[in-house]
């Protein structure tokens, strides 16, 4: 079964905490809370991981040929299309 965490005070600060932008007093308070609350530690860790995953570069596909062709035509660069 899925557990639900409701430590309300925490939610508003974790985003800035992860970015390293939380003022020192709040940061200390949050870290103290985390040392006592396993649930909040999980939330912080999984949020950090979530952001990391979205930062991973996607495998890149080249620009589709037809889009490239229309772009070069619009820009009057047809001569350079296959160079």
């Amino acid at each position: 079964m899925t557990e639900i965490c409701n430590c309300k005070g925490l939610a508003s600060t974790i985003s800035e905490y992860i970015d390293g932008e939380l003022p020192p007093e709040l940061c200390a308070e949050l870290e103290k809370h985390m040392s006592e609350c396993e649930n909040c530690t999980i939330v912080v860790n999984t949020m950090r991981k979530t952001i990391d995953l979205y930062k991973q570069p996607e495998p890149t596909n080249p620009l589709p040929d037809e889009i490239k062709s229309r772009l070069y035509t619009r820009l009057h660069l047809e001569d350079y299309l296959n160079k």
């Binding site: 899925t2 557990e3 639900i4 939610a11 508003s12 999980i42 860790n45 999984t46």
Partner: peptide, 28 residues
């Protein structure tokens, strides 16, 4: 409604290739 209840599963231990499998990327 900004702070709904939070799901509490620690999935950070999943291997990287699973976290970023083709299916996972689609879900992301």
């Amino acid at each position: 409604d900004a702070h709904p209840g939070m799901v509490l599963t620690d999935w950070c231990c999943l291997p990287e290739d699973e976290l970023l499998s083709a299916e996972s990327r689609q879900r992301l």
